[in-house]
């Protein structure tokens, strides 16, 4: 192109990005504002005199909630991988009957509103006594990620050359061995993509947490923030500080996983 004439595009791009990310900036700004300045008029645009009161509150009040969220996120990743990776392998490489119908079902599954699933789970958990448990929440959260995982694995594994799996077969590897030692290692990027999204969705979930785990001893961080909003509307620096901390996984995902997200995009491209 014409590199000389693109500087103004960069300028426009910077302005647009700044507008788009203003709420994020504002969250950080408020999290550093002193409680006394919170109701200043006009509000302080820059945290000239930053305070870490808010963050101190996060560490004194919200550490258990952060721990619970990590636990739920990791549990959700494990469950999602356990179910979706073998299923993706079967759909992509073993060509079972009814694969099309199953793909269709998974697509429909993604259309079901979480609030409906939440009511169904509530009705079931009430009887089983699974309300307010971490594993109950893990199972419910995994329903967001499993259909996505299966579809992503199927798309990626369908692109693995048949010669590779056939070669393993010739060498005497059974189906399980082929899956574990050939297909899974090749699919590393999809495993990472699915894991990252499963973690992020479980970490961000509010609906299942607020319905299935609202009276638990172990609440996730999203409920921690929600409880803050309900209790003390004056301490917005603490609320925003918690929000900043809760955004860390998203930031990490963006920085570390850009490549794997891109890998996921090409996973679709490999399929014929």
């Amino acid at each position: 192109m014409k590199p000389r004439r693109t500087w103004w595009k960069t300028a426009v791009g910077l302005v647009l990005t700044a507008i788009m990310l203003f709420p994020v900036y504002w969250m950080i700004n408020v999290s550093l504002t002193r409680t006394g300045d919170m109701r200043a008029d006009p509000p302080h645009w820059f945290p000239w005199a930053p305070t870490f009161e808010g963050y101190a509150d996060v560490f004194s009040d919200q550490l258990p909630a952060l721990g619970t969220s990590i636990l739920v996120g990791l549990g959700c990743v494990a469950l999602t991988l356990l179910i979706s990776a073998p299923a993706g392998f079967a759909l992509a490489q073993l060509r079972p009957r009814g694969a099309g119908a199953l793909g269709f079902l998974l697509l429909v599954a993604q259309m079901i509103p979480s609030v409906v699933m939440a009511m169904g789970f509530y009705a079931i958990y009430v009887r089983l006594g699974w309300l307010n448990t971490v594993w109950g929440l893990i199972i419910a959260d995994s329903t967001i990620a499993v259909p996505f995982g299966v579809l992503l694995f199927t798309a990626f594994m369908a692109g693995i050359p048949r010669e590779l799996t056939q070669a393993a077969k010739v060498d005497g590897a059974g189906t399980w061995r082929t899956f574990r030692s050939v297909v899974l290692p090749v699919s590393r990027n999809s495993v990472l993509t699915v894991s990252l999204f499963a973690f992020l969705w479980a970490w961000s979930d509010f609906i299942f947490a607020s319905t299935l785990d609202r009276n638990g001893d172990q609440i996730p961080i999203t409920l921690g923030i929600y409880a803050y909003i309900g209790n003390n509307t004056t301490q917005w620096n603490s609320i925003m500080a918690t929000a900043v901390v809760a955004s860390v996984p998203a930031a990490v995902l963006l920085v570390v996983a850009q490549r794997y997200v891109a890998g996921g995009v090409t996973a679709g491209a490999v399929k014929d």
Binding site: A99, L107, T266
Partner: peptide, 23 residues
């Protein structure tokens, strides 16, 4: 339609049906 287009929704969470067309 080039299939990268199908790929994008896969990543963002609502996949195109990844039906394995039976060979």
């Amino acid at each position: 339609m080039p299939s990268t287009v199908n790929g994008a929704p896969v990543v963002v969470g609502a996949a195109a049906p990844a039906t394995t067309r039976s060979a």
